[in-house]
């Protein structure tokens, strides 16, 4: 694999899982990201907050190349994200993503959803993949749903399956794009519990969410986005009690 270690650090001893430097992104004439710089370390849980349209979603989607950044530099686990297909594939295999709208494959059963990528991309034998899938389903709490179709599950169950599906590829980083925004209130807790357990187990996570409770409990750091810029970075305690930036104060006053 063609890897480019971040300058100045020996590869292998790299503690910085995600490095973003001056990342910019345009959609036509509209600039969604205006130069975002931040670093996510191994095992860190970073929660991204901000008003809608602030670029949070665009930012984490540039990390696994669902959007192509127009300027700046992104390095994931020592591999620089360029147009080189091998880099992109290597990076994608390290990152798991959970979407707001679950995006489960409706024509496959739950267990087929989870085993598809391990079997087709990693070449795992079917039995191994299914065994691992069942373990993951147990971990997220719904082993009995293995042979159902996504349409037969509740929203909370579907999202947990989506988390299991992402975990099946054994990623080092998990990205969450507003995982509970499309859920009914009574199902939010079950998904957040799974995410808390994941955080506790040492997974590097970047989570976009409006769930302040989760942020306060599980986050190591809060990133506040507004209008395409990363305006404030702080620990949860600092951010929620003493936000520095005016717009952060405005945002918090609206949601708390």
């Amino acid at each position: 694999m063609a890897t480019q270690p971040v300058a100045g650090l020996a590869s292998g001893a790299n503690d910085a899982m995600i490095v973003a430097e001056g990342v910019e992104k345009w959609f036509g004439r509209f600039q969604a990201l205006k130069g975002v710089t931040t670093t996510v370390r191994r095992g860190e849980v970073v929660v991204v907050v901000g008003p809608s349209g602030s670029g949070k979603s665009t930012f984490i989607r540039t990390i696994n190349r669902l959007e192509r950044h127009d300027a700046g530099r992104i390095v994931v686990d020592g591999i620089e994200l360029t147009d080189d297909l091998r880099n992109i594939e290597a990076i994608r295999s390290e990152i798991g993503m959970v979407f707001q709208s679950f995006n489960l494959f409706p024509h496959l059963t739950v267990i087929q959803n989870i085993t598809l990528a391990p079997r087709m991309v990693r070449g795992r034998p079917k039995a191994d993949a299914e065994e691992k899938a069942m373990q993951l389903l147990e971990r997220v709490g719904i082993p009995e749903q293995a042979h159902k179709y996504p349409a037969q599950l509740s929203g909370g169950q579907q999202q947990r399956v989506a988390i299991a599906r992402a975990l099946a590829m054994e990623p080092r980083i998990m990205l969450f794009d507003e995982p509970t925004s499309a859920l009914d209130p009574e199902m939010i807790k079950e998904v957040l519990d799974v995410m808390k357990e994941l955080a506790g187990s040492g997974m590097t996570m970047v989570v976009i969410t409006h769930e302040i409770g989760f942020a306060k409990e599980a986050a190591d750091r809060i990133l506040f986005f507004d209008d395409g810029l990363l305006l404030e970075e702080a620990t949860p305690d600092r951010f929620f009690t003493e936000p520095q930036h005016d717009r952060a104060k405005l945002f918090l006053s609206q949601i708390l």
Partner: peptide, 13 residues
Amino acid sequence: AAMLKEEPVVEFA
């Protein structure tokens, strides 16, 4: 993106 801004899209950068 245009809807998020009330005015017609203006050239930024």
